[in-house]
Amino acid sequence: MKKILVVDDEENLRILYKEELTGEGYDVDVADSAESAFKQLDENTYNAVILDIQMPGMNGLEAMSRILHKHRQQAIILNTAYSQFKDDFESWSADAYLVKTSDLTELKNKIRELIG
């Protein structure tokens, strides 16, 4: 079973994504901050990480660069309320950049495309 890590500071969204992606047939773990995500990434191997950008503490962009530094092949999807980061140089190393919406179809499609 493909494993996915969802990093988001919003609890409701963590529940939503876990519910929906589990329904899609993935094994979903969640983390409420970049720091706890690093811990889980050290303990487990994930096929994909869904990363929020605006979070208390370390933001998603910095977190991504840290993750990629350690796990070079890690698939990462930036999933954020902000559209403006899409043009940032830092966000280009993500496999996908999605703006949050209640319709998770695009997210699901992107995951399917990336990891099957």
């Binding site: 919003e10 409701n12 969204l13 939503l16 309320a81 949050k100």
Partner: peptide, 9 residues
């Protein structure tokens, strides 16, 4: 946007 996403979802 976050609550919207959540509500919609």
């Amino acid at each position: 946007r976050n609550p919207l996403t959540s509500i919609g979802g």
